[in-house]
Every structure is written in C-alpha cells, then in structure tokens.
C-alpha cells in the first residue's frame, strides 16, 4: 500500500481546520514585502518539481497512452476509445474490480474496527509509550517481508499454522490456495500490518478531544460505552473520515502482498486490479490498455472519495 506517508500532513489539517471561525480575523500584521513570494517558491520548489516530474507528467502521459496501443517498446498509435470499450467488455477487468472490492471491504472494515478498539483502549486505559511503539512494529516491516512471513506461516503443507491445526486433527487449510479463502487471507495479513498505524492516527485524534468532556460526562453517570458512542465517536468524526479515505485509497492499491503470496491465483481468485494492470503492462506488454484501466480506477476512486467525504461531513466538527 503506497500513499501512506501523505496522510501525516493531512491529519493535522483535519484537526486544525475545525477550530471554527474566530470572532474576527485579525488584520495581517505583516506588510507586503517584495521577494517573499520568491522565497516561498524556492521553499516549495523541491516538492513542486517532484510533483511535476513524478506525478503530473506521468499522469498526463498515462492519459495519452490510454488512447493508444502502446506496447512499452515501439510506436504508440492513437486508437481513440477502443481501450475503454475493451475494458468494459473484459470480464477479467470486472473480476479484478470485484476481487479488489472484496479485499477493500474486508481490509478497511476489519482494520478500522480493530484500530478504533485499540485506540480507545490506549486512550482510556493506558498511555504507555512502549505499548504504542509496539503497536507500530508490524507497520515498520516491509510489505514484501510481511507477505513472505505469512506465506511460510500459513503454507498448506509446511506452514506452522497448519501443523498446529494438524495436531488438533483439523485442516489442512489452504489459506492462500483455496479460491474462497485467498482474498480474505490477503486482507487479514494487511489488516495485521496496518492496524497499529491506523490506531495511532485515531489515538492522536482522540487526544484532541478536551478531557473535561469525559470528566463532566462521568460525573453525570455515563459509562464507558456511552462515553465512546456519545463523545469519542462524534468528536473523532473528521479524523475517522480521513483515516477511512486514506485507508480506502491505500487499500485499492493492494499489489505487493498479492505479488508475493498468491500471484493472483488460484485461477483468478486473488487477481486484484493493480496486479491485473501490472500483468497487462509488463507481462503482456499492453501498456496502453493498462493505462486505460488505471485511468478508470482513478475515476472510481475519485467518486468513492467524494461520496465518503460528503457522507462523513469530514470538514465539519462538533468541537467548534
């Protein structure tokens, strides 16, 4: 899952924004000085150059390729909307979208619920720094390593887990090789890897909630569940919305775990959309068609993000 680093800057935005309208914005104290703009430009130049070279240019080029029959090597010929029509007819494309959606629902669902639980426990029970650091450990392990470790642990024949099940006269279970379990296993492996990180984000959000709210509610006789459902959850909403959107986008980009563990199989049971795009681009050398599917994915993600932010009213907060 890429794109996680981006969330750090964004999370503070989510928190600082809802402080609400100050009574009257003070007049800017600074007088306008020549040269400030240029200094500012230099300060943001590295990121701007990086953005242009590594995001803007590839995106524009990808968009162009999606209208061509580019094969990675050789000439790109304009083919109009042929690729888009082909994608809509390609049942492997729809299968990949379906598999990815299953993955996202399982992964984001389990990950968010667990992270919320962990964050609440950290917030209400202990504030141990060691515990918090420990939670982050799985997130620090490179994804390929995570995939390999679980591949070995869960292997149907030589895996530790199946040996354990075998000693209890159960199994063997083909965690990665059974077509109906494969995508669930991949989801839960990534839930294991990312729950700690998400819990930490939510915990940071919870720290922004004024403690006196909890104190006064406790005086009024509210129990832990009531505190959680009436105070924590509503006041956490902007942060939760952000975590959800970032998880969702990151989750759609699932690739590495699949590439390491199942390679999309058995048959096409775990062929998620990124893996299929990769195959089209670098195994079949249909870069134009791969670009088309990538563009379609961008559209889907854009709509989903928009809907999600609207539903969760992410830019408003009751803390005002």
């Amino acid at each position: 899952m890429t794109g996680w680093g981006k969330s750090r800057g964004a999370i503070t935005d989510g928190l600082s924004q809802p402080v609400g309208p100050a009574p009257r914005p003070p007049r800017p104290l600074r007088r306008h000085r020549r040269g400030d703009g240029r200094v500012a430009l230099i300060f943001i130049a590295p990121i701007l150059v990086g953005f242009a070279v590594f995001y803007l240019y590839p995106t524009v080029r990808g968009l162009w390729w999606s209208f061509t029959d580019f094969s990675l090597i050789g000439q790109a010929n304009f083919v109009g909307l042929d690729n888009y029509a082909a994608a809509l007819r390609d049942f492997e494309f729809w299968n990949s979208m379906r598999v990815t959606l299953c993955y996202v629902i399982l992964n984001v669902g389990s990950q968010t619920v667990l992270a919320l639980l962990l964050a609440t426990l950290m917030h209400r029970l202990t504030r141990s720094v060691i515990l918090r650091t420990t939670l982050l450990l799985p997130w620090l392990v490179p994804n390929v390593t995570v995939g390999l470790v679980w591949l070995w642990l869960l292997d149907a024949d030589l895996g530790f887990v199946n040996r354990l099940l075998g000693s209890m006269d159960l199994g063997p279970v083909g965690f990665f090789t059974n077509p109906s379990l494969g995508i669930m296993t991949v989801s839960l492996v990534n839930t294991w890897a990312y729950t700690g990180y998400n819990a930490l984000l939510l915990y940071a959000g919870m720290l922004q909630i004024p403690p006196d709210l909890y104190e006064s509610a406790a005086i009024d006789g509210a129990g832990e569940w009531k505190l959680f459902s009436r105070i924590t959850l509503p006041l956490l909403r902007p942060v939760l919305a952000l975590v959800l959107v970032v998880s969702l986008i990151g989750s759609f980009q699932i690739f590495d775990t699949v590439a390491v563990t199942t390679k999309g199989g058995p048959v096409n049971a775990t062929r998620v959309i990124y893996y299929y795009i990769y195959q089209q681009a670098f195994t079949y050398f249909h870069l134009g068609y791969a670009a088309t599917m990538a563009i379609l994915l961008v559209l889907v993600l854009g709509v989903l993000t928009f809907v999600q932010l609207r539903l969760l009213r992410a830019s408003e907060s009751q803390l005002a």
């Binding site: 070995w152 024949d157 030589l158 083909g174 090789t177 059974n178």
Partner: peptide
C-alpha cells in the same frame, strides 16, 4: 496427490525435501 486448494505454495522440491 495434494488437492490444488491445499497444495503448498512453496516449491515442489521444498515439499519433497520436507518428506511430505
């Protein structure tokens, strides 16, 4: 032979070496 859905994802030579 192992059923495909519970066959090891590791190489066949590894499984042979392990004796299964």
């Amino acid at each position: 032979a192992p059923q495909l859905d519970v066959q090891s994802s590791l190489s066949r030579l590894d499984v042979l070496k392990a004796g299964s």
